[in-house]
Design a binder for these strands. Structure first.
Length: 433
RNA sequence: GGAGGAGUGGCAGAGUGGUCGAAUGCACCUGUCUUGAAAACAGGAGUCUGGGCAACUGGACCGUGAGUUCGAAUCUCACCUCCUCCGCCA
């Protein structure tokens, strides 16, 4: 959500931003409605002021005066009631429009319609040249009994799976490696550096109430992508939702910022719009686990940009330590969500598909989310401000897929990257005995 | 699933129809005192929003929403959240 005053003062900017994001939004309609809202509000407030003034006088009035005053007030009350009802109706429409105002993309975001227009910024690592036809993670994992898709669909339905044996071992090795990677971040010398660099590890709910989804911007737009319970909660597709809402309706102390949270949770996605895509394997599943970086920082564009680069670098360092070739793309306007100002995707090389596939998504929002979630802090000058928020994946299930395919050997075995060997209990290779 | 209780400012907590944006305490800020601090004393201070260059001023906010009333933190109803006890399950 954006500030209505900002919208009024920058309507061209909003319109251009919406166009760049390929989102259909009529700013003028919102402003016309807001004019009406203001006009009614002023009228209602004037009547309330009169009501308040007379109310005070009634106490001191003589009995006969009281009777006429109360009669007058009854009349005022009726006309006030009518206007209040009208205002309420307008406010309803107004709020609906307000939550659909897209945030303005950064100047540096390239023009484009969808993910095919995303722009490659850099690549890392050499894509492996196999002297044989590389197998997919599906074939490799099945060959080593690391996964069971047949029983997965029997038990859980379409896109269901069981992870097994070395599949489990490798997955847990990755979680532990990444946890340790972030735990080392706080270990620098000075207390201030330690405070700024530390990440708080968290396990967060994925069964979450409606408000956090509204606050993070997943609702009301993406209702059909979410699973909903009979009690009205939703299952979140990322730990971002609960983690962002952790400080909902709170006033933070400026000295706490930045707040860095490393949040783990199961993630659920209906994949309603992608029934035909990635129907096999672990690339696109309804249920997986995810470790997410979430940062709250001071309300400054420079700070947002700084931490956006930082959370991206963190993910890159992990991929580099694992030795998985990847590239960074900057997402084009049409591939940005409603609230996102700018987004980088990290895409790992997937040999079986001979292309890069998204494994991480790093975006910043300015105060778009925190305005909705009502997360504020008091600035030096005593002014309340909404903090800025950003997030990036730390690890999901997908890098394991890339790892398995990139580290496959001609005999079908899978080499374990050196950094993971200690987390695999010394195991250096996955192969049939 | 059943029975009760509670939600008020940063925190604790009073307030049961008008004089209440709200006592009091703690925390906070500013003065006096002090070499400095603490203590003591005096004063100040909520958030959102409209108008005004400003001083200032209108409105809203006591979990949320509806209602009763000339007037609601206070009365009624619904919902949300939390707590206690019983039951059931882990």
């Amino acid at each position: 959500m954006l500030d209505i005053r900002f919208i009024r003062e920058n309507k061209e900017l909003i319109a251009l931003g919406a166009k760049k994001k390929h989102i259909d939004f009529d700013v003028d309609a919102l402003i016309a409605l807001d004019d009406k809202r203001r006009e009614l509000l002023t009228a209602v407030e004037a009547k309330r002021a009169e009501q308040n003034a007379v109310s005070e006088k009634i106490l001191a009035a003589s009995p006969s005066e009281k009777v006429t005053m109360i009669a007058d007030m009854k009349e005022l009350k009726d006309s006030l009631q009518a206007q209040e009802d009208e205002l309420k109706e307008i406010l309803k429409q107004w709020q609906l429009l307000m939550v659909s105002v897209p945030n303005i993309p950064d100047m540096s975001v390239p023009e484009g319609k969808d993910d095919t227009d995303n722009m490659e910024l850099r690549t890392w690592g050499d894509t492996p040249k196999f002297p044989f036809e590389p197998k997919s993670h599906i074939d490799l994992m099945l060959a080593h009994d690391m996964v069971d898709f047949d029983r997965g669909t029997k038990v859980a339905g379409f896109r269901g799976y069981f992870l097994k044996n070395d599949g489990v071992k490798l997955q847990f090795a990755l979680w532990n490696f990444v946890q340790d990677f972030f735990a080392k971040k706080g270990a620098t010398a000075s207390p201030e550096e330690k405070r700024v660099n530390s990440w708080t590890p968290m396990v967060v709910p994925s069964l979450v109430r409606r408000e956090p989804f509204m606050g993070t911007g997943y609702l009301p737009q993406s209702e059909e992508d979410l699973y909903k319970t009979q009690d009205g909660e939703y299952l979140s597709g990322t730990a971002e939702v609960a983690t962002m809402a952790y400080y909902m309706d709170e006033v933070l102390d400026k000295s706490q910022l930045p707040i860095k949270m490393l949040a783990f949770s199961p993630a659920f996605r209906r994949e309603a719009g992608s029934h035909g895509k990635d129907t096999k394997g672990l690339i696109r599943v309804h249920e997986f686990y995810k470790l997410e970086q979430v940062v709250l920082c001071e309300a400054s564009h420079a700070e947002s940009v700084k931490y956006h680069e930082e959370v991206t670098t963190n993910a890159e360092e992990i991929m580099q330590a694992l030795g998985i070739p990847y590239r960074i793309v900057v997402n084009c306007g049409g591939d940005l969500g409603l609230g996102q100002v700018k987004k980088y995707d990290i895409e790992a090389w997937v040999p079986a598909e001979k292309k890069y596939r998204e494994t991480h998504s790093a975006s910043y929002f300015h105060d778009f989310q925190t305005r909705r979630l009502n997360i504020r802090y008091k600035d030096e000058d005593g002014k309340m401000k909404f903090v800025h928020s950003l997030n990036n994946t730390a690890l999901s299930g997908r890098p394991m897929i890339a790892l398995i395919e990139n580290f496959q050997q001609e005999d079908g075995s899978i080499k374990i990257p050196d950094v993971l060997v200690p987390y695999m209990g010394g195991q250096t290779i996955i192969k049939k005995n």
